[in-house]
Design a protein around this nucleic acid. Structure first.
Lengths: 208, 208
DNA sequence: CTATGTGAAGGCCTTCACAGCG
DNA sequence: CGCTGTGAAGGCCTTCACATAG
């Protein structure tokens, strides 16, 4: 319960929460920092340091109460009780895949809209959601209380879409377009860049 | 041209290469480290340090020759001349989306196979590729010279699929399943975990 | 006696600052 | 004189090691 939480710690928190869910399903009551670290690819010291940013969750000599810790981490991550309302912009293959991706709905992310600018797609259904017209973005964001948006449009329109979303009041963006988006610093922006990931693989294949 | 290249540097190298491509298309001949950094969201000092791991590419007083540097970075990343043959395992929505994702083919990643275990999918076509039977994985990997695989199967079969791929001779894995895969240390493994990304957004939304 | 919580140490990556090249 | 290349400094994150709690 101290200072600034490292980005890497936040990332691991998600992994801890997921692994704790598995342990919980297996009926485990307590888990040591060492085993929890093992389960997500790190070590006990790292686990203890990560958790120490928030609270004292453990019992010396025993370990961490699995179910309790999982719930606390879910709350810290903002996926405990509340649900985030998410819009997807770009109803191409990737956008459609994400809307149907069960991992998201199991967590507390609820897709409330999918938008596109292609008249051939508008009005069709994707996983039960009707594709809306991107020109209605502003109205949809406010009427549906969208707080998070996923951008899966082509790179040349990504910045424009980001601007529209921010203007409409969306506070967090998950961007799949291979573009550097410029947004106001109080907007939470995260990029998933598949080409960069593959090039990372490629680099390590060559240099080994 | 010194010591171990940081992971973060490899990541930025991809971004530099992409931005240089844009500059090249605009007909720019030279670019300063400062501008190149600006273009990918970092600064000139970082750019110079990153590049210094490999060679002296720049001309003091002038900057970096755009086209030359782009080509050299592409080669360093392993996407310059050669083509990587990629198989996708899991022909669900996400797998299908990735096979059709133009960003990959534009880079030097060529999808040569998509596999699934669902009889209802085997034999159908996804973006021109016929879905193969996962039981033929070993044969397909060797006959098609697959070096890189993308895993888009459900979490409960991800480890098994990874084992099969490694056993068959694949050297690099891009894993989209929310699972910690155990693979031999000489296999290049990279995880894209969409739930973790969303939880990262969620955390920062709550804590700000 | 076991396993947590945490200052301190260590290591890695980024930023600084400037010598030196063109 | 401008901008690169790079040692040195700084800052952030991980690992260590042990006092402490149960």
């Amino acid at each position: 319960m101290k200072k600034k939480v490292p980005q890497a710690t936040v990332h691991r928190l998600s992994l801890y929460a997921r692994y704790l869910g598995e342990l919980e399903a297996q009926g485990e009551d307590y888990v040591s920092s060492e085993r929890l670290g093992e389960g997500v690819g790190t070590n006990g010291a790292q686990v203890r340091k990560d958790l120490s940013f928030f609270d004292r969750f453990g019992i010396p000599g025993r370990g961490y109460p699995v179910s309790f810790l999982r719930k606390r981490l879910a709350n810290i991550l903002g996926v405990g009780d509340r649900v985030w309302r998410v819009a997807v912009v770009g109803a191409g293959r990737l956008g459609a895949a994400l809307v149907g991706y069960s991992v998201f709905e199991k967590q507390s992310f609820h897709f409330v809209a999918i938008l596109d600018n292609d008249p051939g797609k508008i009005g069709t259904r994707v996983n039960g959601l009707e594709v809306g017209d991107i020109r209605d973005l502003r109205g949809i964001v406010s009427s549906q209380n969208v707080e998070v948006a996923v951008i899966t449009v082509p790179v040349h329109s990504a910045q424009q879409v980001a601007d529209m979303l921010v203007e409409a009041g969306v506070r967090a963006l998950l961007n799949f377009a291979p573009a550097k988006l410029d947004v106001s610093p109080h907007i939470v922006l995260r990029n998933v860049d598949l080409a960069v990931e593959l090039e990372g693989l490629s680099f390590h294949l060559i240099n080994s």
